[in-house]
Simulated scan of single mutants.
Amino acid sequence: MVAIKIVVVGASATGKSCLVSKYVDNVFYESEPGTHQATIGASFKTKTITIEGIEVTFNIWDTGGQQRYECFAPTFCPGAKVAIVCFDLNKESTFETAQRWVNTLDSLVPNCKVYMCGTQKDRVNSQQLAFSGFYARIHAFCEVIGAPFFETSAKTNEGIHDLFNRIASSTIDYMMEIESSNKHERKAKVSKRKRLWQCCPCNLT
Rank of each mutant, 00 (worst) to 15 (best):
M1L: 05
M1K: 06
V2T: 05
A3H: 10
V8A: 14
V9I: 10
G10Q: 10
G10P: 12
A11C: 11
A13P: 00
T14L: 10
T14A: 08
T14M: 12
G15E: 08
K16L: 14
S17R: 09
L19A: 01
L19C: 04
Y23E: 10
Y23W: 09
N26G: 04
V27M: 10
V27Q: 15
F28V: 04
Y29H: 13
Y29A: 11
E30W: 01
E30P: 06
S31F: 13
S31M: 06
E32C: 07
E32W: 08
E32G: 03
P33V: 07
G34I: 10
T35P: 01
H36T: 11
H36V: 13
Q37M: 12
T39S: 14
I40Y: 02
G41I: 02
S43N: 13
T46R: 14
T46A: 14
I49P: 15
I51C: 08
I51S: 15
E52M: 11
V56W: 11
V56C: 05
T57K: 14
F58R: 00
I60L: 15
I60N: 12
D62L: 02
G64K: 03
E70M: 02
C71S: 05
C71R: 08
A73Q: 07
C77F: 11
G79W: 02
G79S: 02
A80P: 05
A83H: 05
C86H: 12
N90G: 10
N90K: 10
E92A: 06
S93L: 08
S93F: 07
T94I: 10
N103K: 15
L105F: 13
D106T: 07
V109P: 00
V109E: 15
N111C: 14
N111E: 15
V114K: 15
Y115S: 05
Q120Y: 03
Q120V: 12
R123N: 12
V124G: 03
L129F: 05
L129Y: 03
A130T: 13
F131E: 13
S132K: 00
F134W: 15
Y135N: 09
R137S: 15
I138K: 03
I138H: 06
A140I: 03
F141Y: 15
G146R: 09
P148K: 05
F149Y: 15
F150T: 08
F150Y: 09
F150G: 08
E151G: 04
A154P: 07
K155Q: 05
K155T: 01
T156S: 03
T156C: 01
T156P: 04
E158Q: 13
H161V: 05
H161D: 15
H161R: 11
L163A: 07
L163V: 09
F164H: 11
F164S: 09
R166E: 14
I167H: 03
I167N: 04
I167W: 04
S169R: 13
S170L: 09
D173C: 00
D173V: 02
I178W: 01
E179V: 00
S180L: 06
S180C: 07
S180D: 06
N182R: 13
K183S: 09
K183I: 02
E185T: 09
R186G: 00
A188Q: 06
K189H: 05
K189I: 03
S191W: 00
R193F: 00
L196N: 04
L196K: 01
C199W: 02
C199P: 01
C200R: 03
P201A: 04
T205D: 15
